[in-house]
Amino acid sequence: MTIILTIVFTLMAIGLILSMFRFVKGPRSGDRAMALDTFSIIITAAMVLLAHVFERYIYVDVALIYAVLGFVGVIVIARYIEGAL
């Protein structure tokens, strides 16, 4: 069981690094916003998984709030790019 968790956390870490790479490189602001979106989704999943590892129910709440805030942030950035804000 521990080996699976190790593999999953490693994959998530590589995913975070890759999306960070797109965040730094992305030629347009749309690319950066999308990298941020993927980043926050991976963090949400990792947070729920950490709740399982540490046996803390409260971390699930943190993940839920993080998902909501990430979604609102990306929507606001998209409206800003569009020029409607």
């Binding site: 699976i4 968790l5 593999i7 999953v8 956390f9 994959l11 998530m12 590589i14 995913g15 975070l16 890759l18 999306s19 790479f21 797109r22 999308m34 990298a35 993927t38 989704i41 991976i42 999943a45 998984l49």
Partner: peptide, 17 residues
């Protein structure tokens, strides 16, 4: 399910690059 999820999260980030 956790393992499958990890693999797909990684593939999503790879597709991003």
């Amino acid at each position: 399910l956790i393992l499958i999820g990890g693999i797909f999260l990684f593939l999503g980030a790879l597709g991003l690059v």
